[in-house]
């Protein structure tokens, strides 16, 4: 196992897929924030120059170009940068990419990857801090991946590139520099398979992306107080691993769902609705959502911390359910 950062793992996946498949193209952009002196970045630059395209600030047109190319089998990876910017391409992603397969009665598919970094980033203020996962989840026909660690980032990115569906890869700037062990060689992590990041018998905490990191931190605090939390990392929202969620709730009887979108119609709402429909009898106490507060994101970093889901709020919610 090699130790690498989240960003390096993503770039390794992109390099491998570009090596494997001449139909994979890349819109360069900021390339997920990976700096210089990276062997994979150098390799991609030198060996795939004819498949790299430098973008102007034109999210909508590029998203649709990636979609149109995908209909002829070109798998374009489009790192869009800050997730807030993808609203410019909402029409193209939701309508053109998301609907083509269905509306062609299965004749056309759209294997494109839209990579974004979401969430509170430390002074991003209101227009650079969006968490669009639940809005996207409301649009049929789009796969959504949300990795929490380098190993998952690599395996999920490989799956996103190979998938015949449009995939929105929702990442987090604060994860980019975090390091972790990554298995040697090539491997894919299928969508729809949640990962139990920590075993525990007392309470289930469901999360994705950076909130898995917060949940694991919370679990350590809780453990010190005699509460053992099980952390279910969704890894993908579409498809959703309902079985893993229900199985864990069946074991613990208590559920906290952590998500950075504001609470109404959020990922947390949907997970809890799913449990209510399919496993109401598994719950010993009513479940709790831990979300970003339902307000805009202020520029002030202290207020940003206040509105976001964080380790303390997860601990507090879990203790409340276990009391």
């Amino acid at each position: 196992m090699a130790v690498m950062t989240h960003a390096e793992a993503l770039v390794e996946a992109i390099r491998e897929c570009m090596d494997e498949d001449p139909n994979v193209a890349l819109v360069w952009g900021s390339l997920m924030g990976v700096g210089g002196n990276n062997e994979h970045v150098e390799h991609i630059k030198e060996d795939f120059a004819d498949r790299i395209f430098h973008p102007p600030i034109s999210e909508a047109a590029i998203a649709a170009i990636a979609t149109g190319a995908a209909m002829d089998g070109v798998r374009t990876i489009f790192p869009m940068g800050t997730a807030s910017f993808m609203f410019r391409a909402w029409d193209q992603i939701i309508h053109e990419a998301g609907e083509a397969h269905y509306m062609s009665n299965g004749a056309v598919s759209v294997p494109a990857v839209f990579h974004v970094v979401h969430g509170l980033r430390g002074g991003g203020s209101v227009q650079h801090s969006q968490s669009p996962q639940s809005m996207l989840w409301n649009a049929p026909g789009i796969e959504i991946a949300m990795p929490s660690c380098p190993a998952d980032a690599k395996g999920l990115m490989r799956t996103a590139i190979k998938s015949n569906n449009p995939t929105v890869f929702i990442d987090y700037q604060k994860l980019n520099k975090r390091s972790g062990e990554v298995p040697d060689g090539t491997y894919d992590i299928p969508f729809g398979v949640a990962d139990i990041k920590r075993q525990g018998a007392d309470i289930t905490i469901v999360a994705a992306s950076l909130q898995v990191v917060h949940s694991l931190e919370a679990a350590e605090v809780l453990s010190g107080e005699g509460i053992e939390a099980e952390i279910v990392d969704l890894r993908s929202l579409v498809p959703l691993d309902e079985e893993a969620i229900l199985s864990s709730v069946g074991k613990t009887g208590r559920l906290v769902v952590v998500d950075e979108a504001p609470p109404r119609c959020s990922v947390a709402s949907e997970v809890i609705a799913t449990v209510a429909e399919k496993g109401m009898d598994l719950l010993k106490v009513p479940p709790v959502r831990v979300n970003r507060l339902p307000v805009h994101v202020p520029a002030n970093v202290a207020l940003e911390d206040f509105i976001g889901p964080n380790t303390d709020r997860i601990v507090e919610a879990a203790k409340q359910l276990c009391s």
Partner: peptide
């Protein structure tokens, strides 16, 4: 009121109602 920060300096009183940090916004 401290909400906007460097990206969003604006003042309705000064005839500058809103500042967008999105390109072209």
């Amino acid at each position: 009121g401290g909400r906007g920060g460097t990206f969003h300096l604006a003042s309705a009183d000064a005839g500058m109602p809103h500042t967008s940090a999105l390109v072209g916004g």
